[in-house]
């Protein structure tokens, strides 16, 4: 395995974690990772050596996912999935109980642009400037979406803002 292979492979576990947080179901999440890796390999010559490889890979995943969401929004297959089919790591729900389950449901209720930022900051622990690069938005936008997203998530989890989509169904 050469240096380039190793560089990209180092990021696979994190790419899988982020993908899972976007689509939950393991097979579909790994499809997203695979699409991301294939595009990254195909365009590796376009990556500027010395620039942030993680931000580059995450921005590829963000773009592919954004396209998938646009393509699928007419037929939201995700909503019809039985909860048992979702691949939440079992250990997590056993150890941490209900709050973790609630978090998953609450994330689904957030607008995708808030959700992505909460995950990139809270889970990936990216710096705000890095998030701005990944999502191709100004840092000020990252900050305001982060602030709104966190408050929104808090209200959902505290039961103050019952997700209307679910109630209507």
């Amino acid at each position: 395995m050469n240096e380039t292979d190793r560089l990209i492979e180092e990021h696979i576990p994190r790419l899988r974690r982020y993908a899972r947080s976007l689509v939950w179901e393991r097979g579909r999440a790994d499809d997203l990772v695979q699409d991301t890796l294939e595009r990254a390999w195909g365009r590796f010559h376009l990556w500027r050596r010395g620039s942030d490889l993680r931000a580059w890979l995450f921005s590829i995943m963000h773009n592919i996912h954004a396209n998938d969401v646009r393509a699928n929004c007419a037929t939201p297959a995700q909503q019809s999935l039985d909860e048992n089919e979702l691949d939440i790591p079992v250990r997590a729900t056993q150890e941490y109980g209900l709050e973790v389950r609630d978090m998953q449901a609450a994330l689904d209720c957030l607008p995708v642009e808030q959700r992505e930022i909460l995950l990139l900051v809270g889970l990936e622990e990216m710096r705000y400037e890095e998030v701005a690069k990944v999502l191709n938005v100004p840092v000020g936008t990252v900050m305001s979406r982060l602030s709104r997203g966190r408050e929104h998530l808090h209200q959902i989890m505290a039961g103050k803002a019952m997700p209307e989509l679910r109630v209507m169904k």
Partner: peptide, 30 residues
């Protein structure tokens, strides 16, 4: 405190993915 708890819960929910065996189709995209 609330927001830090959110971050901790996100880790609790999703960090186990980091320890899963990586499917073959991803380890050798090349």
């Amino acid at each position: 405190a609330t927001y830090r708890q959110q971050n901790a819960t996100l880790h609790a929910l999703l960090d186990p993915v980091l320890n899963e065996a990586i499917p073959q189709r991803l380890t050798r995209p090349q």
